[in-house]
Simulated assay, not measured.
Amino acid sequence: MLCLNVKQVSMPKRVLITGAAGFVGSHLCDKFINEGCHVIGMDNLITGDLKNIEHLFALENFEFYHHDVSKFVHVAGSLDYIMHFASPASPIDYLKIPIQTLKVGSLGTHNLLGLAKEKGARILIASTSEVYGDPKVHPQAETYYGNVNTIGPRGVYDEAKRFQESITMAYHRFHGLETRIARIFNTYGPRMRLNDGRVIPAFIGQALRGENLTVFGDGLQTRSFCYIDDQVEGLYSLLMSDYTDPVNIGNPEEITILDFAEEIIKLTNSDQKIIFKPLPTDDPLQRKPDITVAKRELSWSPKVSREDGMQKTYAYFKGLSEEELYRSEHKDFSKHIVK
């Protein structure tokens, strides 16, 4: 158990996970609990859901704080690790709360870097493949600087993450802070919000409701999907490594959206048709990670095939209640809107 203190085995290492009630954050909580850590989860629940972590509430080595990391963050006691995963991650979310998205990437990251400095903790920042924008280089390696429209609608997310990387490296160079940066590519699995606008839950939700599957553009744009178990192992390996530059964590198996829609129809044994709608502004046409660095530095590569991962994901969504299945894709963000 890497999370156990070598000198005092009875004292588990302490990790703060922001965005703990979200999709990836909740799985990270499980991982660190299983590794013997004391986990402090933090989330303001704008997009997160307590049901993702309710199974942890009874554990002595788990605690939860309802807090917005864009405001001052205080955690009593020592901290060994910080995993910063607080941020809206779907276009539906960050286009409705653009100011909050920018704030959590900038002010939130600044607060957590300051906390890491105060506690002498190692911090891993969740960046994204969106820092590459609509790429002119394929596949995308960490050396590619990206093609991002700073003032487009997606810029609130893309630039928040790019700034997040910049300030993290500034803290690393100026303060000698132990930092790690993960550029996360499309990830899927249980606990995704069914109607959050991302392609997998959108397609599965439409299929389960008997609706036609919506493909934007001509469907020839590509994505590469990484199952959550692989993603978590990659993130954990990066945190425990000595590598400080950004690392792509994703599955390099590429598929067109149109072909993926056909896979979903086959998986769900449905007879829905595929309908086409205009491509959103600045929607990237290609996504495929070059994971050479992850293989070399972390000895990591994804293990779960898309077929197996999608079977598990479909089983999870199929088990949702009727209320969850037909719930509006739009969460109520009214109390969080900054005008």
Rank of each mutant, 00 (worst) to 15 (best):
N5G: 03
V6E: 15
Q8P: 04
R14T: 15
R14K: 14
V15R: 02
A21M: 02
G22A: 07
F23Y: 10
S26A: 05
F32V: 00
I33S: 01
N34L: 08
C37Y: 02
M42K: 05
N44S: 06
D49G: 03
I53W: 00
E54R: 07
H55E: 04
F57T: 15
F57Y: 11
F57S: 08
A58S: 15
L59Y: 03
L59N: 13
L59I: 06
E63C: 06
H66E: 15
H67C: 10
I82L: 00
H84Q: 06
L95Q: 05
P98T: 06
P98N: 08
S106L: 13
S106R: 07
G108Q: 02
G108V: 02
H110P: 00
L112N: 02
G114Y: 13
L115M: 11
A116L: 06
K117F: 14
K119C: 08
K119V: 04
R122W: 00
I123E: 04
I125W: 08
I125C: 13
T128I: 03
E130D: 12
V131N: 09
G133Y: 14
P135H: 07
V137Y: 07
V137N: 08
H138T: 10
E142C: 14
T143I: 12
V148Q: 02
N149Q: 13
N149R: 10
I151R: 15
G152P: 03
G152W: 04
A160K: 08
I167A: 12
T168L: 11
T168V: 03
Y171F: 15
H172V: 00
F174M: 13
H175N: 10
G176Q: 07
T179S: 09
R180S: 15
A182E: 02
F185R: 08
N186T: 09
M192Q: 15
L194N: 09
N195I: 00
I200W: 07
A202I: 01
I204F: 10
G205D: 07
Q221F: 05
C226L: 13
Y227T: 07
D229A: 14
D230Q: 11
E233Q: 14
E233V: 12
S237N: 10
L238E: 03
S241Q: 04
Y243Q: 01
I249C: 01
I249A: 01
E254P: 09
I257H: 11
I257R: 08
D259C: 02
I265H: 05
K266T: 13
T268K: 04
T268R: 01
S270D: 10
F276W: 05
T281F: 14
D283C: 09
T292L: 00
A294V: 09
E297V: 11
S301V: 12
V304F: 07
S305E: 03
R306G: 15
R306A: 15
R306H: 12
M310P: 13
T313L: 11
Y314G: 00
Y314C: 03
Y316R: 10
F317I: 09
L320E: 03
E322T: 08
E323R: 13
Y326K: 08
R327T: 09
S328Y: 03
E329P: 10
H330M: 12
K339V: 06
